[in-house]
Amino acid sequence: MTASDVSDLAGGLPHRPVVERVVDTRLPTRHGTFRAVGYLDRAGTEQVALVHGEISELGTLTRVHSECLTGDVLASTHCECGEQLAAALDRIVEEGSGVLVYVRGHEGRGIGLLAKLKAMRLQDEGLDTVDANVALGLPVDARDYHAAAGILQDLGVRSVRLLSNNPSKVEQLTRYGIRISEQVPLLVPPNPESLRYLRTKAERMDHLLPHLGQAFSGA
């Protein structure tokens, strides 16, 4: 049994690995040079981890980043995702070592790209990000971090300093066997497009965003 394996032995089921490592290659980026370690998860989804420097088993600076086409690729100002991705890569390089797990299948907090766009349209009509998902008959947050935990275990990481403002991510990774030694804030200054979205995350999803208190006060 490898480090990435979380078994299905209960009930006599045969063991199935959470993720399978497929490729490990050098990836130079504008942030620095990483190892890109590619995986397949149980659903056949392609996943990737970016590893910088010599990582340790304990206390590795880590970002588990949910896929966001509109933010990461198209530079949408509706969310903070693209800026968080860039900031996390910069922090890892500044630290000298660390891991960023880029979790595919998490678009729109797990509802998919087209559903996310529909939810964004409802937000333009006045709903917040929570009520928009509910109005579509979809979960507020459908993300699962099992594969991300399996990737970290495969890389030999047992505890992390997690770059995240999301307590649910901390709870899930802990449940899947990754110890969180520290939750490190990853705060991005809001803009007029993102402020309402971020306030909803803080007020209705318990994200730790203390910097929003004075943002655009009186606007």
Rank of each mutant, 00 (worst) to 15 (best):
G11I: 04
A3K: 14
R104T: 07
D5T: 15
L85V: 00
V184A: 14
A88P: 04
R30N: 12
V22D: 09
C79K: 00
V6N: 15
G96V: 07
G110Y: 09
I55Y: 08
L173P: 03
T2I: 15
T129H: 04
V73L: 11
A142H: 02
S56R: 11
I178G: 02
E67T: 03
E107A: 13
E193S: 15
G12W: 11
H52D: 08
G11C: 01
S4P: 06
A148W: 02
V103M: 10
G38M: 14
D124W: 15
L212C: 03
V18Y: 01
R158D: 03
Y39P: 12
E171Q: 13
S181R: 14
R42S: 12
N191K: 12
A88C: 03
V99K: 01
V101R: 00
R175C: 01
R196I: 08
P17S: 12
D124S: 14
L61I: 09
I55T: 11
A132P: 05
I111Y: 11
L187W: 15
P14R: 08
R143W: 06
R30G: 13
C81K: 05
S66G: 08
V37F: 09
V19W: 01
D24V: 12
E182N: 13
G44P: 09
L138D: 00
S7P: 05
Q84Y: 06
L173D: 05
L13D: 14
R42Y: 13
T200W: 09
Y197S: 04
R143G: 01
D41M: 07
V48M: 15
P190E: 03
Q183W: 05
E20R: 15
L89Q: 07
V19P: 01
R179V: 06
D206T: 07
E171C: 00
L9D: 14
V103D: 06
R104I: 15
S4W: 12
G71F: 13
N165E: 01
S97E: 05
G126I: 03
V51W: 11
A3R: 14
G38S: 11
V22P: 06
A3I: 13
S159V: 01
D5K: 13
L208W: 09
Q123D: 05
H207A: 03
L186H: 07
V188M: 10
V23L: 15
A87H: 11
E46W: 13
L89D: 00
S159I: 00
R196A: 15
Y39W: 14
R121I: 10
K169Q: 06
V64I: 13
A202H: 04
Q172D: 02
A10C: 10
H31V: 03
K201N: 11
H78T: 10
I180E: 10
D128I: 10
L50M: 14
V51L: 06
L13C: 08
D90K: 06
V188W: 12
L162I: 09
S164E: 04
L69G: 10
P139F: 02
H78Y: 10
L208Q: 09
C68W: 14
T45Q: 11
A142S: 02
V101L: 00
N166M: 06
K118N: 02
G53P: 05
A149E: 00
H207T: 04
D41F: 13
Q123E: 09
G213R: 13
C79P: 06
E94A: 12
P192T: 04
Y176M: 02
D72N: 03
P189V: 05
G150R: 04
S7L: 13
L155N: 07
G150Q: 04
A119K: 02
L122R: 12
E83F: 08
